[in-house]
Amino acid sequence: MAAVRTGSEIALNRFAVVIVLIVTLIFLAPIYWITSTAFKPRNLATTIPPTVVFEPEISPFVKLFTKRAQLRSAPTPEEYAAAPWWERLVFDGGEKVVRSGKGEVQLSGYPSRFMNSLIVAITSTVLAVGMGTFTAYGFSRFKVKGEQDLLFFILSTRMLPPVVVAIPMFLMYRAVGLNDTHWGLIILYTAFNLSFSVWLMKGFIDEIPKEYEEAALVDGYTRMEAFFKIVLPEAATGIAATAVFCFITAWNEYAFALIMTNRRAQTAPPFIPSQVGSGLPDWTVIAAGTFLFLLPVAIFTFLLRNHLLRGMSFGAIRK
């Protein structure tokens, strides 16, 4: 009789759909704004009211990746004709691409910052999730003296706003030479994510009946083998969810990256806004940088969506 629905139920359902639509629009608006600005001609980027219909351009991305300088004078027709298509886009914006003495195109700071972000975020995520999983397994399966206190201690590292310790951390990092290094940020983000990872993974591993591993132990496997063969596949969902959260945290982190790095190891978040200040702000270039910066998180989350959604339904468990 489920097919029969009363009028009030239908009305309620429609109301819910409307609410969901509105909320979705609110959340999607900034993403639309960034994406559309990334493809706008510069003169349309800051119009009031905003331009919605325009011919998309690729020039913000060209500018994003190249080092540019203001044109003192317009390029000669020969120069213009000799330039590749992307260089003409820069000329059109009243700028020129900076070349080295040998004529090689100089890249902007963005590609290396982006790589730094990838290196730091991926490494710290792997470390935090890996160490977190092992630690959580230990807490979950063995009697640990003072388990509750230790777990609380691990959690307590998240009780201060991280920025509070930024200055002492900066001084310590400078003393040991970790300033402006990849490892400096990796250690920082790993430590920051570890407490989160341990707590989340403990919840997931607690859900896996220990009978499975015990069966494997009796069947002739070592605890390590049982962990890798039985526990890890069962915990895949939890590992995926934890990894997404850790990655997003490390990827988005701004304050420490701003303080601890300036060139070699600088990540994208402090770099992108720094471009606002150099010369006239070109919002299309900033939007293009932000747009590309969004992609890895979107792709990562998309790839793991099944794990994130599936929840905790384990194969053959019958409770």
Binding site: P209, E211, Y212, E214, A215, A216, L217, V218, D219, G220, Y221, T222, I230, P233, E234, F314, G315, A316, I317, R318, K319
Partner: peptide, 20 residues
């Protein structure tokens, strides 16, 4: 001796099979 070396087999009431 550990569980592996004792060469005994264990059958439980539940959770007895490896999922997946």
């Amino acid at each position: 001796w550990g569980a592996a070396e004792r060469d005994v087999a264990l059958v439980l009431q539940q959770y007895s099979l490896y999922p997946r």
